[in-house]
Every structure is written in C-alpha cells, then in structure tokens.
Design a protein around this nucleic acid. Structure first.
Lengths: 249, 249
DNA sequence: CGCGATATTGAAGTCTGTCAAGCCCTGTGG
DNA sequence: CCACAGGGCTTGACAGACTTCAATATCGCG
C-alpha cells in the first residue's frame, strides 16, 4: 500500500465510522480560561460534511507540501499531524502539532505555507478551498466561528513563540508538556499519563533544541520528580504544579 | 499632559489630518511573495471610520493591558506599537511589533491576551468591539478580508517563532532586521536605512535574548559588513544577501 | 525474536547569560 | 541654540548551558 491519502469519497461508504466534522476552540467572548468547545452546530457539521471527502492518511505521510498549490482545507477528526518548514540551512522547524478539532491548510495565500505530515494514521475531512470560501460567504455565523478558530491558533502560536524563546531547555520542555496535557485532543481523557505521538526529533525541532537537549531535559524533569518516563513515548505527569513552576510562566 | 489616550471623537475635528482606516496584508489567494496590499475599499474605510473614534497615544503609553476586558479593536494608521506578555518569572516577552495597516486587540476571547504599548506617538481608529462584530456579520466580504489579515498575522507569528528558536543570536537578529526591512510600515519607502522604533531591550525580549547579546550580535553583523549602525536606532543594511545567509533560512 | 531506528548518556568546545563598568545618544531645560 | 543629565547602549570577563560528535542502550516493528 502506498503512502498517498486514501480518499473515501463524499459521504463515502465508511462515513458512518467517522466522527462528524469538528472545529474546537476557546470561544471569542466569554469568561477566560475555559477549555475549548465545539464551534460547529449540527447543521454546520452537515454542511461541511457535504462539501468534503473523507481521507485517511497513513503515519508519516505528507498531507500537503510547503509551497504547493493550496486546493484543500483539512479538518482533522482523528489522529495527530504536524506542520513544519524546511530552512535553507537544512534545519527543520516544526511550527505546530494538530489534533482532532483542528483545521489545516488555511493560513496560506494560494500556496501552503508549511508542510503538513501525519504523525499517526489519521482521518480528516478534505474540503475544496473554493467551496469552503463560498460556504463562509453564505454563512456569516460560520465565518465568525472560523475567525474565532484562527484567533485561537494565533494565541497558541504566540504561546509557542514564548516557549521556544525560553532560555533553558527545561523550561521549554515543561511548557511543551503542559501545553500538550492541556490540549483537548492530546491527552486521553484527563489521565495524567500522556502518550506522545511525536518523536524526540519532532519535539526538538518544535522547541528549537537538539534531541540530546530534549533527552537531558526529560532526565532533569524526571530527577526532580515532575514527570516519569514509562517508555520514551509514554509520560506520566507526577507534579503539575512543579512543571508549571519550571516552565517559568 | 497625562499619558492617557487622547480621544478626538467620531469623525473628530482633526479627522482630516488623519489617514483613513487601513488594513494591509498579503492577499489570501494570489501568486506568492508579493507585498502586502490595502484590503479595505473606500466604502469599507468609510464604514469603519463611522464606527470609530480617533485616538492619539503618546510614546510609551499602554493602549490596553493584558487581561483587561476587551472593549475595543484598534486600527493603527500612524506610528508603531508592540504587544507583550509579562511572565510570572518576571521576564517579559514581546510578541509583536505593530505598524500602520495593523489591527490590535482582535486575537482575544473577551479579554485582551497581551498588553499593547505605543513605541512612538501614534494614531489609531478605536472601534467598539460589538459594532465591529456586527459590521462583520452584515458584510461577509469584509469578514473575509479580516480572515485574510488574521492568516497573515498567523504567518508572521510563525515567522517569529522560527526566528526566536534559532540557536545563535546573530541568526535571530539578522532575521529580525530582514523582517523589519520587508515590513510594509517599518521601512521608510525602500531606503536601506532602517529606523528602529524600539529599544534594544524590546528587541531582546522579542528575540528571547538579553540586551547584551543583541548588542554583540549587532557588533558581529557590523564587523562582517552586513549592516552599519549610524546611531543605535538608525541602521543601514549594507549586504542584504549576507544578512539572508546569516539568518539561516 | 532480531534488527534497525530511536533514545539516552558522555566529554569537549562554543555561545549566551550574568555581573560590572564605561560610553554615547537623546531630549529636557535654560 | 546649547549644555547637561539621565537613560540607553556597548564592551569586558567569567560561569553555565547548550551544541556537537561519539558511543551505547533501548524500543518497537516485522
């Protein structure tokens, strides 16, 4: 089986197995610091579903490449993805990890601004960008919700910036783990064990460190009793308050 | 004279001196890497102007505080501002520098997500957020443009992240100077002399460095012949290609 | 169960942060 | 318009943290 996205088709035969389109964010106006909620009402979910194909993408597969002609927007409903830039220096910078409830391929200008890659096998709604735009024009309320989602993304990008510009590796990793455990799609339902879907290399490229520095930061967090590595990819958070303190916010 | 924003009032007496509302961004769909353009047509400029008060803010004044109840959106038409977060560790993180054509106070959820502060004396349209939102609902085309502006901001935030997560100070500063000289409102009309409206301390907090590191990075860039410091705040770019190379993209 | 990829650990070099001191702008007041 | 004072900027020395290079241990997939 090749690595290309497998298209199941509009309202495809397996659609019944698939969760409906979903966009989650912290609402625009509201009391602060409450978690993300579903922005789409059932009607909007149906509308989006009608425009979409369902695609299943295998782990490691590139969903769309940086610079590619932007034809589709993707709504992730299952699995995890990352977006990254390749720098001319040969380095790679991971700009975001995407979870169910996220929208990929939007923040561009005719071409994709980053490469998107599946970290796990994933399922997404693939929406032609023209259809998406005309839906937004017909439906100002939905448009407002998308605006809200973008604001949310902007905030998390700023959060990312703050994390990546911390001076020491421990602060960066602590902030990363906290963000991950607070992220709606990332933590499995409140348990304090965190399954990391990404490699150390991905974390390093996200935080602007080397894998060695990430590894040593894990070591230090574990030595201080903040976390425990059950396996390299399964982390339990032992002392969230300590993590918070170490993150230096 | 106190430091509070000076309100000139809706269509105030000095409105004739003031440029019309302006929102600039790289268009959504289009061939790539062209500069930012004005997104508002004259009708939209009038609409926004009718909803707004014109405020003049003195250098250093806080426009709105992080966490404050979000009541207004600001459209900057003259001068420069920055937004920042104060971390619990006492550090400060500058998240963006804003120029004419930018929109402040949008990316929030009922409360301002960051503090906005004037770096120079500035002029802005102050738009009540409710009026702004209802205008967007009445005018889907404008809504789409704001969406475009947000995408643009998201891209520049990611750019910021990439810059701030570079390993060495020279790369960060080179990237910063390039971004500034490419920024529509920042460079004075194509001249290769760049007037920096922000302090070294602001640059340091933007790049995640100390002022000393910024100073040494300037020293190094100058020694390599990439830039020349006419005064600490007036920089000429001597070799843009070299800067590009040093920025490591 | 075994191999390849991933993760960890170790040692040396480099760069930034910190602390300290001096210089130079800038803008305020006469 | 000029002088002065304060703040901003630069430079120096040292310690600490990260990167780099290298080797080993471990995980997880087939």
């Amino acid at each position: 089986m090749d690595g290309r996205p497998q298209i199941i088709g509009p309202k495809g035969s397996l659609a019944d197995d698939v969760a409906p389109p979903s966009i989650k964010a912290v609402p625009f106006l509201h009391s602060r610091d409450h978690g993300a909620v579903e922005l789409l009402n059932p009607r909007e979910q149906r509308e989006l579903g009608k425009l979409s194909s369902i695609v299943r993408v295998r782990r490691q597969t590139v969903i769309y490449p940086e610079g590619g002609r932007s034809q589709f927007v993707f709504n992730l409903v299952q699995g995890v993805a990352q977006t990254y830039h390749l720098l001319e220096s040969g380095q790679r910078r991971v700009t975001s990890f995407m979870f169910p409830g996220d929208l990929l391929g939007l923040s561009e200008n005719g071409h994709y601004a980053a490469t998107a890659q599946a970290l796990t096998n994933l399922t997404a709604y693939r929406i032609p960008i023209d259809a998406f735009r005309s839906l937004l024009e017909r439906d100002p309320a939905l448009d407002g919700r998308i605006l809200c989602k973008l604001c949310h993304e902007l905030r998390s990008s700023e959060r990312h910036t703050i994390m990546a510009s911390q001076r020491d590796a421990i602060s960066r990793l602590a902030g990363f783990l906290l963000g991950l455990s607070a992220s709606p799609g990332a933590a499995q339902a409140g348990a304090e064990t965190l399954r990391l879907p990404m490699l150390r290399h991905d974390i390093a490229d996200y935080l602007g460190l080397t894998v060695e520095a990430v590894s040593r930061a894990f070591q230090s967090l574990e030595a201080q009793g903040a976390v425990h590595r059950q396996t390299p990819r399964v982390i339990s958070i032992l002392d969230e308050a300590l993590l918070q303190r170490l993150a230096q916010w």
